[in-house]
Amino acid sequence: MPVLMPQVHWPKELQEEGPNQDPSILLGGAAEIGGTSYRIHAMRINLDGLEPDFQADVEEAVYAEYRIDVIFEELIFLDDFDGSSTLSLDTGNYILWMNPVSSASRAEDLYDGCKKT
Results as ranks from 00 to 15, higher is better:
51 E>P: 02
95 I>N: 02
56 A>H: 10
116 K>G: 10
95 I>V: 11
62 V>Y: 10
82 D>Y: 09
61 A>K: 13
78 L>F: 11
29 G>L: 02
46 N>Q: 07
64 A>P: 02
34 G>Q: 04
76 I>M: 14
107 A>Q: 10
8 V>R: 07
99 N>H: 09
73 E>G: 08
48 D>C: 04
102 S>N: 09
1 M>F: 15
114 C>T: 08
97 W>E: 05
43 M>E: 00
109 D>H: 14
22 D>F: 03
44 R>I: 01
73 E>P: 05
59 E>Q: 13
40 I>G: 01
59 E>D: 15
73 E>L: 12
4 L>M: 07
65 E>A: 14
83 G>D: 13
98 M>F: 12
24 S>K: 08
84 S>G: 11
68 I>T: 06
21 Q>N: 04
67 R>L: 14
72 F>K: 11
28 G>M: 07
78 L>S: 12
26 L>V: 03
43 M>F: 05
84 S>T: 11
96 L>H: 06
10 W>F: 14
64 A>G: 08
35 G>N: 00
115 K>C: 15
5 M>G: 05
30 A>R: 02
84 S>R: 12
96 L>W: 07
81 F>H: 13
4 L>R: 08
18 G>F: 00
34 G>N: 01
102 S>W: 05
62 V>N: 06
2 P>M: 10
38 Y>C: 01
91 T>S: 12
99 N>S: 10
33 I>H: 02
42 A>K: 00
44 R>K: 12
49 G>Q: 03
71 I>T: 15
19 P>I: 01
84 S>W: 07
12 K>I: 03
14 L>N: 01
20 N>E: 09
21 Q>S: 01
78 L>H: 12
56 A>Q: 11
84 S>M: 07
19 P>V: 00
115 K>T: 08
31 A>M: 14
21 Q>W: 00
1 M>K: 15
65 E>F: 12
6 P>Q: 13
73 E>N: 14
36 T>W: 03
11 P>I: 06
53 D>G: 05
21 Q>H: 01
7 Q>S: 12
42 A>Q: 02
42 A>L: 05
48 D>T: 08
97 W>R: 09
115 K>Y: 09
60 E>N: 04
15 Q>C: 08
51 E>Q: 09
39 R>G: 00
75 L>I: 11
38 Y>G: 00
43 M>R: 01
20 N>V: 04
17 E>A: 14
115 K>A: 15
96 L>M: 15
104 A>L: 03
41 H>G: 04
89 L>T: 07
1 M>R: 14
58 V>E: 00
30 A>H: 04
72 F>M: 13
80 D>I: 09
15 Q>Y: 12
84 S>P: 06
71 I>W: 14
102 S>K: 06
86 T>F: 06
39 R>K: 03
69 D>V: 06
97 W>Y: 11
61 A>G: 10
64 A>Y: 03
17 E>Y: 04
23 P>E: 08
104 A>R: 01
106 R>S: 02
46 N>E: 07
78 L>Y: 12
9 H>L: 10
23 P>F: 04
31 A>E: 03
63 Y>N: 04
12 K>L: 08
111 Y>Q: 14
